[in-house]
């Protein structure tokens, strides 16, 4: 088998602008509000996505319209964000991390439990509930794209709507964080006590940050559910949150466009290395005792982990941030 670097590039580009990139850009924009701007270490972000996705799927499955499902999903995520916020009244940031990751795991375990099977269909998940979305698809059947980077009509429809959503959310975050509200968030991130001494209700601002971040996260979950026409509890593992962190940190925490740039780059790098490695293995450039084709996926995660460690240590401001401004300091 020959080694085709162009094909790897095409794969990578498709993934850099495809549905995964949209999903992580949206999730990242939400996470950025909490982590990047406010300095809150929410390790249960995937819980917001779960709530958004399942809210939609369950509502439609019970006979409700799609828009109502989306609304319910987002409302539930806002409530979840407020719930996440409770422990921040008196606890340090690392406790928040533990509480949120545990809460998200509880949600996942409950959705996959047999007790809730009538509602969630347990481990099987819910499928085929977003036909209404694809009925709206204005693109006729066919293949669209530039050069060899193409998508089918339905995927294109999802991607276009997805990137529009991303743009909307980025704009929203940008407006909010330019306003005095955003300055208070940054003040909390830099020095919570100082913000408090200026008479700011730090707890209230944190709750708002978690609610907005959660709502955007829910939107990511909705996108994921609608686009793939399926939700399954095991799509919402803790690792999703960690990858979202990688995306935000890569792009630049506390930068409105950071997660978007981060997500595009993240998926490009991830897919490119994977494609190249796979080809190298199958072409025999990498000997079998070192790496087999099945193990390539694991290598990707190793690289992600290494990247995360190096970035947060040596360039915590990511690609877009400025060192002074986004230095996440929590003592």
């Amino acid at each position: 088998m020959d080694f085709d670097i162009v094909r790897s590039f095409v794969d990578a580009m498709r993934s850099a602008f495809g549905t995964s990139a949209v999903l992580f850009a949206l999730a990242g924009v939400g996470l950025n509000v909490m982590f990047g701007y406010t300095g809150l270490l929410n390790f249960g972000h995937v819980g917001s996505l779960l709530v958004g996705g399942y809210g939609t799927a369950i509502t439609v499955n019970l006979g409700g319209p799609l828009w109502l499902g989306i609304l319910i999903g987002i409302t539930a995520a806002v409530l979840l964000g407020l719930l996440y916020g409770l422990p921040t009244v008196r606890l340090r940031e690392d406790y928040l991390a533990i509480v949120t990751i545990a809460a998200a795991e509880i949600l996942r375990l409950l959705t996959r439990s047999s007790a809730l099977e009538p509602l969630t269909q347990g481990v099987f998940g819910i499928q085929k509930f977003a036909d209404n979305f694809y009925d709206l698809n204005p693109f006729p059947r066919g293949s669209y794209g530039v050069w060899r980077i193409t998508w089918d009509a339905n995927t294109l429809w999802a991607i276009v709507v997805g990137w529009l959503l991303v743009a909307l959310c980025v704009w929203l975050v940008w407006m909010l964080t330019r306003a005095p509200w955003g300055r208070v968030l940054k003040a909390i991130r830099e020095d919570e006590d100082a913000a408090r001494s200026l008479g700011k209700n730090v707890f209230g601002y944190k709750l708002q940050s978690l609610a907005i971040g959660g709502a955007i996260g829910a939107l990511a979950g909705v996108f994921f559910a609608v686009q793939s026409q399926s939700v399954n509890p095991d799509s919402f593992q803790p690792i999703f949150t960690f990858l979202a962190y990688a995306v935000v940190i890569l792009g630049g925490p506390g930068r409105a466009l950071g997660p978007v740039v981060g997500s595009i780059l993240f998926w490009f790098l991830l897919s490119f290395t994977e494609a190249v490695l796979r080809q190298a293995v199958s072409a025999g450039f990498i000997p079998d005792w070192l790496l087999t084709a099945q193990e390539v996926a694991a290598v990707r995660w190793i690289l992600v982990g290494l990247g995360l460690m190096l970035l947060i240590t040596f360039r915590p401001q990511g690609l877009l941030g400025s060192r002074e401004e986004t230095l996440i300091d929590a003592r």
Partner: peptide
């Protein structure tokens, strides 16, 4: 070394996440 660089606590926690990904998947391979 990270502690002596006075890397903030949040960054240290994120580092442990990265480390966990690395070690776990090295073990997987």
């Amino acid at each position: 070394p990270l502690r002596r660089r006075k890397v903030p606590n949040i960054s240290l926690i994120v580092t442990t996440i990265g480390l966990s990904l690395v070690v776990r998947h090295v073990i997987l391979i």
